[in-house]
């Protein structure tokens, strides 16, 4: 069989890198969910301190993509794969950042001298977001368009949860107008989780582009 070994091995290596990075980001989102539940300060510290790992990996993946584009000029499915990786790479890096943001919001809430009741239980929302991310990564791993499309449905549910959190936080601000900072931080957790869901949806869209060659956007 005629194959361009250098080129195809470069693609295999890139595929490994992006899957490894995806798994790392998923792990960070799980840790963020644990932080919401346990309020573990050590875990917050560990999560914020390790963010550089994903940032470095993002650069490596981007460099690898540019190298492949410059040296091999891929076409067809290979081109779509590289385009997908470039876009997914950035989504994954942002997801990891958002996980850190969640941790930092929790840290701010924990450090606040004031105590107001927690306006919203984020555990369900966090679980749903983790499910979305896992589905997106699985869809990317297995080139599973059907699974990718299921992510779109969950995105609507997460958006509804974010709106629910917003309304609850608004009520709480009315009740406890002297502690807006803490409540705003609480709402921002919902916002960060929702954005993770959005970015998981973007990954699913890229999977559809890779497999079908169609540019789709979840409405």
């Amino acid at each position: 069989m005629t194959t361009h070994f250098t080129f195809h091995h470069a693609l295999i290596k890139l595929n490994k890198m992006v899957l490894k990075m995806s798994a790392m980001a998923e792990d960070r989102v799980r840790k963020a969910a644990t932080i919401i539940k346990t309020r573990d300060l050590e875990l917050i510290q560990s999560l914020t301190n390790s963010d550089y790992e994903i940032d470095e990996m993002e650069m490596e993946v981007e460099e690898e993509c540019l190298k492949i584009l410059a040296l091999h000029q891929p076409v067809a499915s290979d081109l779509r794969f590289i385009i997908m990786v470039i876009k997914v790479n950035s989504e994954i890096e942002r997801i990891a950042d958002l996980a850190v943001n969640v941790a930092m919001r929790m840290q701010a809430i924990l450090k606040s001298p004031h105590r107001v009741p927690t306006p919203y239980d984020y555990s369900g929302m966090a679980e749903k977001v983790i499910t979305m991310l896992k589905m997106s990564i699985d869809a990317m791993t297995n080139r599973d368009v059907r699974l990718a499309r299921q992510v779109f449905v969950l995105d609507d549910e997460v958006d509804a949860m974010r709106l629910d959190a917003y309304l609850k936080v608004k009520d709480m601000i009315r009740k406890y107008p002297e502690h807006p900072g803490q409540l705003i931080n609480s709402y921002l957790i919902a916002r960060h989780l929702e954005r993770i869901g959005d970015r998981a949806t973007n990954i699913a869209e890229e999977v559809i582009y890779l497999v079908e060659g169609e540019i789709v956007r979840c409405q």
């Binding site: 195809h8 091995h9 595929n15 899957l19 798994a23 290979d78 990564i137 791993t141 297995n142 890779l210």
Partner: peptide, 8 residues
């Protein structure tokens, strides 16, 4: 998570 994908 097992990938049977080769390269792309």
């Amino acid at each position: 998570r097992q990938s049977t994908m080769e390269g792309t």
